[in-house]
Amino acid sequence: MAFPEPYYVKTNGIDMAVYEQGPKDGVPVVLCHGFPELAYSWRHQLPALAKAGFRVIAPDQRGYGNTVGPKGPEAVPLYDMKHLTDDLAGMLDALGLEKAIFAGHDWGGIVVWQMALRHPDRVSGVIGVNTPFMPRSPIDPIEGMRAVFGEDMYIVFFQKYGEADALLDKDVARSMRFWYRKSGMTLAEFDARPASEKNLAFLKGFAADESLWPGKVLLNEEELAYYTAAFRKSGFTGGINWYRNFSRNWKDSEGLVEKVSVPSLMISAADDIVLRPSMADGMERFVPDLEKHVIPECGHWTQAEQPEALNRLMTDWLKRRFG
Rank of each mutant, 00 (worst) to 15 (best):
V76T: 13
E98Y: 03
M115N: 11
A164Q: 02
A188F: 00
A188I: 01
I101L: 08
W113Q: 06
H119C: 10
L88P: 01
M115G: 02
P194D: 08
S175Y: 01
D171L: 07
L168A: 08
K160G: 09
I142W: 07
G144C: 03
F190C: 05
V68M: 15
E189S: 02
I155V: 09
K170L: 08
L97M: 12
V148N: 00
T186D: 08
G162W: 04
P135H: 06
M91T: 14
D169T: 07
P73L: 04
E197G: 12
D86Q: 06
D169Y: 00
E189H: 07
Y180T: 13
W107F: 15
A147D: 08
M91A: 11
A100L: 06
M153Q: 05
D165L: 01
F102N: 03
R174P: 01
T131A: 14
I101G: 12
L187Y: 00
S175V: 14
W179V: 10
L187N: 03
A195C: 08
Q159I: 08
F178S: 14
I101K: 00
K99T: 14
D171N: 08
P73S: 13
D106K: 12
D93P: 14
I127Q: 03
K99V: 02
G109T: 13
P194T: 08
L187E: 08
Y79C: 15
A192L: 11
E74F: 09
V156I: 10
D86C: 10
Y64Q: 01
G69P: 10
A207W: 08
V68N: 09
M153L: 01
K204V: 11
V68E: 12
Y180F: 13
P194I: 07
Y79L: 11
Y180L: 15
L78M: 06
P141T: 15
A94L: 11
A166H: 03
L167F: 02
D171E: 09
A116V: 11
V111D: 04
D169L: 15
